[in-house]
Nucleic acid binder design. Structure first.
Length: 484
RNA sequence: CGCGGGGUAGAGCAGAGGCAGCUCGUCAGGCUCAUAACCUGAAGGUCGCACGUUCGAGUCGUGCCCCCGCAACCA
């Protein structure tokens, strides 16, 4: 069992602001981070997110707004941080790839691979559109014109750049997957990745000749480092920053990368190969999540459903937005989401957990019995509770967040049945029986609060406080539907 | 022959060889401590279609149908 835990989100490309889909990814990471902080201690857990700030698309977006690239990324990095703070994200650091310390690290990393002979000079050729600063294939063109610039004709261009010998690492990767079947989680994505690697790997270009907004290639300053050799190293570069002294030893390679299914190849194939090439250990796990649609539509500006997670949180609370997403689909699966589902989830919590808390506290106060006495819990009751808690732990440790939440649901369901059987409100119940039942339930609630804490941090804190103070609160108040 | 994901009760989702399951919704009861909450029971499915393997198939094999990604804003 590892003593330390390191979790990362991808670093996001700031061409827009975070929406509910982006938030899903960071919620998964945040939940894991909170779980491990609880388990291993704050100082033994590290949670990293950030922004990927180089590249032609950033330069273009900046120009379109009449800004320098630096001004542009400063602004968007700030927006990201604002949103994450707004949803109570608990990241320990926000890395930006324009941080000079990161740039230096990226240069050192690519230099190491170059020195090892894993990077060689080659050329890239294709139909180049000057306005897009991008290459197209014949099939991409519309009537011979650029698909994005109907007046421009992409011209055949050949540019020098450098390639990484990814093909060389096929056996290394297949061995890695064989030795560590859970390197990619969940299993169905591991199978997918293995299939891709078995099918064969091609070397990939890792520098660009025509992109100025990027990190210069140390062995050829005419070139800049292309996206992956700049972005992926953030997971490691941050750990080398002076304020994180000792972190590299502590948190590498116990890294867990939470990624969407679209960038699985880069994290599960390219990144381990890059690391191996440069003499580093590969990370512990790559956790792949699926995408969800909103009312059946893909999330995006054109569908006008790129919801700011803070808008939902304003009404339902941060906790419930996270809970709704994490309890709706298994990690790795796609799904659909909408406001009605969110409401259902909210009521689910209010009626099980919230209501249970209110019942127990209220009864305990009315009957004036002692609660929260762990020593007095009925042994059978305690055993059952511990069994369910253990089941939760098993799930969450293999990142089955959906299943872990279901297990907590089982506990509250059981508790509601138990309280109905015991009927501690009846007048002819012996005071001893009432005290025993309510004490059992209070200990159960304390456990539920603990298990929910990584998923619903704000609510769990409130519930814990209320239970301790024996104060009756409404954890999830009824939400009035706005008048139509 | 492009690649991949998916098609299980009205809705949303689990299950991956051995009597079809969960949440919500519906109907009928119960309870009254509690946030009109909670508990019990019922109705509702030929598990996309067909063929095959098997004592036995949502679950394995083959063929087919349908939906969704793989081009763009976009995780």
């Amino acid at each position: 069992m590892n003593k330390n835990f390191y979790v990362t989100t991808p670093i996001f490309y700031p061409t827009g602001v975070p929406h509910i889909g982006t938030a899903y990814n960071v919620f998964i990471a945040d939940t894991l981070a909170r779980y491990y902080r609880q388990k291993l201690g704050k100082e033994n857990t590290f949670f990293l997110t950030g922004t990927d700030e180089h590249g032609a698309n950033i330069a273009k977006a900046a120009e379109a707004q009449g800004k320098t690239p630096q001004e542009y990324v400063d602004e968007y990095a700030a927006k990201y941080q604002e949103v994450w703070q707004g949803v109570n994200l608990s990241h320990d650091y926000f890395i930006r790839t324009t941080d000079p310390r990161h740039e230096k690290f990226a240069q050192e990393l690519i230099q190491k691979s170059f020195d090892n002979g894993d990077i060689y000079e080659g050329s890239y050729e294709g139909l180049y559109c000057e306005s897009c600063e991008a290459y197209y294939t014949e099939a991409d063109l519309v009537d011979g014109k650029c698909p994005n610039h109907p007046t421009k004709t992409p011209v055949f261009t050949k540019e020098k750049n450098y390639y990484f010998k990814l093909s060389k690492y096929q056996d290394f990767l297949l061995n890695l997957y064989a030795e560590r079947p859970d390197f990619v989680q969940p299993a169905k994505w591991a199978a997918y990745v293995r299939g891709l690697v078995e099918a064969g790997l091609q070397d990939i270009p890792v520098t660009r000749a025509n992109v100025k907004w990027g990190v210069p290639v140390p062995f050829d300053p005419e070139q800049t480092i292309y996206v992956w050799y700049d972005a992926l190293p953030n997971y490691l570069s941050t750990l080398t920053f002076p304020e994180f002294q000792g972190y590299e030893e502590k948190f590498w390679p116990v890294a867990n990368h939470v990624v969407g299914k679209d960038i699985i190849k880069f994290h599960a194939i390219l990144w381990p190969a890059m690391l191996k090439s440069a003499g580093y250990e590969v990370p512990q796990h790559v956790l792949v999540h699926g995408f969800f649609t909103i009312n059946g539509q893909k999330i995006g500006k054109s569908n006008n459903n790129a919801i700011d997670p803070r808008d939902l949180a304003a009404k339902y609370g941060n906790d419930v937005v996270r809970y709704a997403l994490l309890s709706e689909f298994q990690v790795g699966n796609d799904g659909d989401f909408n406001i009605d589902r969110l409401k259902v989830k909210y009521e689910e919590l209010a009626n099980s957990w919230g209501n249970l808390l209110a019942r127990v506290v209220h009864l305990a106060n009315n009957k004036e019995v002692e609660i929260s006495n762990t020593a007095n819990v009925e042994p059978e009751f305690l055993t059952k509770l511990e069994d369910l808690a253990a089941k939760y732990t098993q799930h969450i440790e293999v990142k089955e967040l959906f299943e872990a939440l279901q297990t907590v649901g089982q506990i509250t369901e059981w508790a509601n049945k138990y309280i109905d059987e015991q009927k501690p409100w009846e007048k002819d119940k012996s005071p001893e029986d009432v005290a025993l039942a309510l004490n059992n339930l209070s200990v159960l609630l304390a456990k539920v609060n603990e298990l929910y804490a990584p998923f619903l941090p704000e609510s769990a804190a409130k519930a814990t406080e209320a239970l301790q103070k024996r104060e009756k609160i409404i954890l999830f108040p009824k939400i009035e539907d706005e008048a139509k």
